[in-house]
Design a binder for these strands. Structure first.
Lengths: 186, 186
DNA sequence: GTCTATATGTGGATAGAC
DNA sequence: GTCTATCCACATATAGAC
């Protein structure tokens, strides 16, 4: 299950998986400790509080996102880069329909009524928005690139939420196709 | 704050408000009891479990949604009806940016990794989707009405999530404008 | 029906040995 | 650094008087 040798990373990975499936509030430190093969008390050597684990997960997600988007940048044109982003959702349709978007569902839970953690929730969204905006700019839509990026990211986050509520992965397939067409026609 | 005379309704309303702001898992029965001006023990006269309160909130939300959509049906044409739906999000931008969509954020939390409550999460979404699909049909898009409805509802749910994560109500204004234009051009 | 009091379980967090 | 054992607060749920 958890294969990293660095225990701190093992905890972050295990927590990310569990929290994706169960939500942050419903996931206990005891569960995380078991999944990470670390004693419960040891968690507090790596993180001072449960909230800090959430912050670490968000930071890791932003890093993964950056890496993923950087890879897409090797694609020849902005249009295919945007299509590739949508394709990520299409590929992950089954897990997203079951547990929601790993990024969006966590951000939604953290942003709600929390002080310090609310700030963290913005980072992954900004990452997605900024990259998308750059692509729309490259496509020649520099005037309304921010608006188009907002629409794209909203659609991706929204379809994850709707498909999860319905328990219907096919909804993600359908919305992905719609978005692909939209990008091609732009 | 809570003005209903029927105590059961008072509990449902108080719980709905608190859970919208704090999330389901983080809201305690003690808080609900205080807000509803009911003794903690009395909650169990009206509801057997905390989960039942969540179910009652969802049922109430579906009822409110039905009523709201029924009102929109008095508008002369399908296009203005769809615009009116989007306008609801634009009007509620401040509260949605702060706490998320009252429907979507609850559904997202309930659908995740829960047995019986997962089923309830689908109902509000289906209500929104079915009504929207009917409007797109009336607009002459009977062929792809379901796809258009899915795109609209996803966009509305998505912008609530993104705006909440960013803490930015203006994002809802911008996406609403985009969707209004989209509806007019259809 | 509505209340007070309480049982029961469990979660985050700490203490301290090794 | 990693562990075991434990504290303490609090949340859900129950008991039972009124």
């Amino acid at each position: 299950m958890v294969s990293s040798t660095d225990p701190r990373e093992r905890v972050t990975l295990a927590a990310a998986k569990l929290i994706h499936k169960q939500g942050f509030a419903r996931t206990t430190l005891a569960e995380i400790a078991v999944a990470a093969k670390v004693a419960l008390g040891s968690l507090y050597y790596y993180f001072h509080t449960k909230d800090e684990i959430a912050a670490a997960i968000v930071a890791k997600r932003v890093g993964d996102l950056d890496q993923m988007l950087l890879k897409k940048n090797t694609l020849p044109d902005a249009r295919s880069r945007l299509e590739a982003l949508v394709q990520v959702w299409a590929d992950d349709r089954n897990i997203d329909a079951r547990y929601g978007c790993p990024i969006g569902s966590l951000c939604y839970e953290l942003a709600k009524g929390r002080g310090p953690l609310s700030g963290h929730a913005a980072m992954p969204m900004r990452t997605l928005l900024n990259w998308s905006e750059a692509q729309f700019c490259a496509l020649g839509h520099s005037q309304d690139a921010a608006t188009l990026a907002l629409h794209l990211v909203s659609a991706l986050q929204g379809i994850s939420l709707v498909a999860n509520s319905l328990g219907d992965a096919a909804a993600i397939t359908r919305e992905s196709s719609y978005l692909q067409d939209w990008i091609r026609q732009l």
